[in-house]
Design a protein around this nucleic acid. Structure first.
Ligand SMILES: [Zn+2]
Ligand SMILES: [Zn+2]
Ligand SMILES: [Zn+2]
Ligand SMILES: [Zn+2]
Lengths: 177, 177
DNA sequence: GCGGTTGGTGTTATATTATAACATTAACAC
DNA sequence: GTGTTAATGTTATAATATAACACCAACCGC
């Protein structure tokens, strides 16, 4: 059996079935909200769906534009409220360095994420590496600092874009839309 | 030379001689710019001085207000240009989670910082812990990601605010202005 | 000197991101 | 149904950041 802990990349493969990503995220969100006694209203669900429209972080005003083309009445507070709810439920992550949002790949349990942002394809992915969190906590503690919140955002190039992945077969076309 | 092993906190002590912090920063900046053949103009120097006006991160528009009260003609581009220059020279750091800026405590050599932000006193300090950087790089590499830029910002409570430091002597007064 | 180039700053306008405040509607409890 | 609360609609504005062009001073080659 192949090494179960080994993921070559947390980034999506080119041509992966993204509709499946979206469906899975929406189902997981519905289940999570049901468990928590929270209401995943149509608006909130739609905002989440729009966040998941790709693996590239999306800005609040891009979401707003798409809500408007839905025919729905929408203004900035509409989308920020939706995002606020989704952030509280741990269904999306905010990326401070981009002022943008990405769907959480593993909602339902507390985790502090390290966000990886590919500067080539624009996609973002998340890790939750215990060793990183431990190193951060230890470093802070040694300096008398007790950590409450962490923001870790790494920019660089993902495996697919560097060519180790599907780029060899795909020429130079980006592996995500 | 500083105590090699043990720093109780990289945060400033209450009542420390902050004028000295400012003077030191300005001298170091002048030396750095001279070495690099860059021009630390009066405006840039003043922006840096304002960034250093405290150990709390300062926003661009707060800097702008203070430039205006200098009597100097100033608009947003004035301060953003100054900040852009200082960022390029590594003289200040931008804190993405606060949209604010802090003077670099150790300019003159490339370093990727971990910013500590005290939610109680509002001060920010920087670390450059090799183990953290190593853990981040290894974690990313294992996931096929090659890191170019890092943003690490930890919020929490600094040693001085928790009472291990000078708070015992200071009652509940904040240790920084 | 002088014309040309560059870098820094001044100035006006606008883009982008986010929130305040209050009105209205939908969901729920009793 | 009526009162209560949560969610959404709506208008306005705050906060952060950049575009575009004008001006000026320093510097360079001549
Ligand atoms: Zn997908
Ligand atoms: Zn990529
Ligand atoms: Zn100081
Ligand atoms: Zn503190």
């Amino acid at each position: 059996m192949k090494d179960p802990g080994r993921r070559p990349t947390p980034f999506p493969r080119r041509g992966h079935n993204h509709a499946k990503c979206v469906r899975h995220a929406l189902v997981a969100a519905a289940e999570l909200c049901a468990r928590q006694g929270e209401r995943l209203t149509p608006l909130r669900r739609r905002v989440l769906e729009l966040v998941w429209s790709s693996h590239q972080p999306i800005g609040a005003y891009a979401i707003l534009d798409r809500l408007k083309t839905d025919g729905r009445s929408a203004a900035p507070p509409t989308v920020y409220r939706g995002l606020e709810f989704l952030l509280e439920q741990g269904l999306v992550h905010r990326i401070a360095s981009l002022n943008a949002f990405i769907g959480c790949a593993d909602p339902g349990h507390a985790h502090s994420v390290q966000i990886l942002i590919c500067t080539q394809c624009g996609a973002a992915a998340e890790l939750d590496d215990g060793r990183v969190n431990k190193a951060l906590g230890r470093s802070a503690a040694e300096n008398g600092f007790s950590v409450e919140g962490r923001i870790v955002e790494l920019s660089g190039v993902c495996g697919s874009c560097r060519g180790g992945g599907d780029r060899a077969r795909a020429g130079h076309r980006p592996h995500v839309a």
